[in-house]
Amino acid sequence: MEELKEEEEEELVVVRNDDGDDKVRILVVDDSPLDRKVVDMLLKRSDGLFEVISADSGMKAMQVLGFNEEKSDFPSAKEQKIDIILTDYCMPEMTGYDLLKAVKEHDCPRSIPVVIMSSENDPQRIKRCLAVGAEDFFLKPLKVQDAQKLRQYARLTGPTPKTGTKRKLSVDMMSETESSARRPRLAGVAVA
C-alpha cells in the first residue's frame, strides 16, 4: 500500500532505458494509479520488451509528447522516442478519445499508434475510436495477449512516407499483355 501511495503523489513517472533502443517505449495514460500500476507490471513482465512511461492525464501526455506550446520540464517525445500510446478512455479534463484525436491531428514526422483501453464494452465508443484512427480498443483488465498486440502495433510502424512518393506509370508505358499478366488474382473471388 505504501508503494501505491507514493505513486499517487507522483504526477508523472519517466523510465529511461540506457541499454539501447531495443525496447518498445510505451506511453501509458490513465488517471487511476492502480490501473497504471497493473498495466506497468503486465508490460514489464512481457519478456522485458517494454519500457513504460506513465502519465496520469491526457494533458500530461500532451506535455510528454511535446504537443503543448508551453515550455515543459518533461523530455520531449523525440528524446524519449515513444513508439506507442496506450490510453484510458474515461479521464477527467481530456478523455482518451480527445488525446487520440490530438495525436492523429498533430503534424508529426511519424504517426504514433494509439490504443484505447476501457472497462466499459460500448460498441459505439469502440467504433468511434477506431474510425478516428485508434489501432485497437482493449477491455480492462489487460491480458498477456493485449501486450503481444501492442508490441506488434509498435513494430509495424515506421517513418510515414511522404505523399506523392509512389511511382505511377502512364497507360502508354504498360503493354496490354504485361498489365493483364501481372494482375493479382484473389482466390475464391469472382468478378461479375
Rank of each mutant, 00 (worst) to 15 (best):
E2W: 13
L4N: 04
V13A: 08
V14W: 09
G20F: 11
D22H: 13
K23M: 04
R25G: 02
I26Q: 03
L27D: 09
L27V: 00
V28I: 08
D31Y: 11
D31M: 04
P33D: 01
P33S: 11
D35L: 04
K37S: 13
K37N: 00
K44R: 14
R45A: 14
S46M: 00
G48D: 05
F50Y: 02
F50E: 05
V52P: 09
I53E: 00
A55V: 02
G66P: 04
F67M: 15
D73F: 10
F74K: 10
F74Q: 10
P75L: 05
A77E: 15
K78R: 08
Q80I: 07
K81T: 06
I82E: 04
D83E: 05
D83W: 09
L86P: 03
D88T: 07
T95C: 03
Y97H: 13
L99G: 07
L99V: 08
D107Q: 13
C108R: 11
C108M: 15
S118W: 09
S118I: 09
S119W: 06
S119Y: 05
N121P: 01
P123L: 08
Q124P: 00
R125K: 15
I126E: 15
K127M: 14
K127F: 12
R128D: 12
L130N: 10
V132N: 05
G133T: 06
F138T: 01
F138A: 08
F138E: 00
K140M: 08
K143P: 06
Q148F: 13
Y153H: 14
L156E: 14
L156Y: 03
K162F: 03
T163Q: 12
T163N: 09
K166V: 12
M174F: 03
S175L: 00
E178M: 11
E178Y: 04
E178R: 08
P184K: 13
R185N: 02
G188I: 13
